[in-house]
C-alpha cells in the first residue's frame, strides 16, 4: 500500500479498513463492510485484504483482539490508527471544500 507517499493521503482501501475497524471485525466482515459502503464499487480480494491487514498491523494502526475464529482473530483500530483516520478525514474535507468552491463558482 502506498499510504502517506503524496501529501499524507491514504489509499481508499486503507481508509475503508480503518473505518471498518472502528468496530472489531474479521476479514470477511471487513470485505462485506467495504462492499456495502461503496455500493459494490470497491470489491477487495481476500489476498489483497490479508496483505493490507498485515501491513496495517505492522504499522500499529490496527491490532488483533477478542475472540478468534480458528486462529483468525478479529482486528480493531488502535489510537494511532484513529489519529491517522481523523487526519485523513480533515484532508478529505479540505479537498471537498476546495473542489466545491471552484466547481460551484464555475457552474
Amino acid at each position: 500500500m502506498k499510504d502517506n507517499v503524496k501529501g499524507g493521503a491514504l489509499t481508499e482501501v486503507t481508509f475503508f479498513i480503518l473505518l471498518a475497524l472502528h468496530t472489531p471485525r474479521h476479514g470477511y466482515a471487513i470485505m462485506q463492510f467495504i462492499e456495502e459502503k461503496t455500493g459494490g464499487r470497491l470489491v477487495l480480494g481476500a489476498g489483497s485484504l490479508y496483505g493490507a491487514l498485515n501491513t496495517l498491523t505492522e504499522k500499529k494502526w490496527i491490532e488483533p483482539c477478542g475472540d478468534s475464529r480458528g486462529r483468525t482473530k478479529e482486528c480493531r483500530i488502535t489510537a494511532e490508527g484513529r489519529a491517522i483516520a481523523q487526519k485523513e478525514l480533515c484532508r478529505l474535507r479540505d479537498l471537498v471544500n476546495t473542489a466545491s468552491e471552484i466547481m460551484e463558482e464555475q457552474s
Binding site: 489509499t11 480480494g45 489476498g47 489483497s48 493490507a52
Partner: peptide, 23 residues
Amino acid sequence: IVEKKDDGKPFRLHTESDDMIGY
C-alpha cells in the same frame, strides 16, 4: 487452489494494484 461458491462476480484474490505488483 481456492474454491468459492459462484456469486456472479469474478473470483480474484488480488485486486489492488500495489498488492498485485508485489505479488
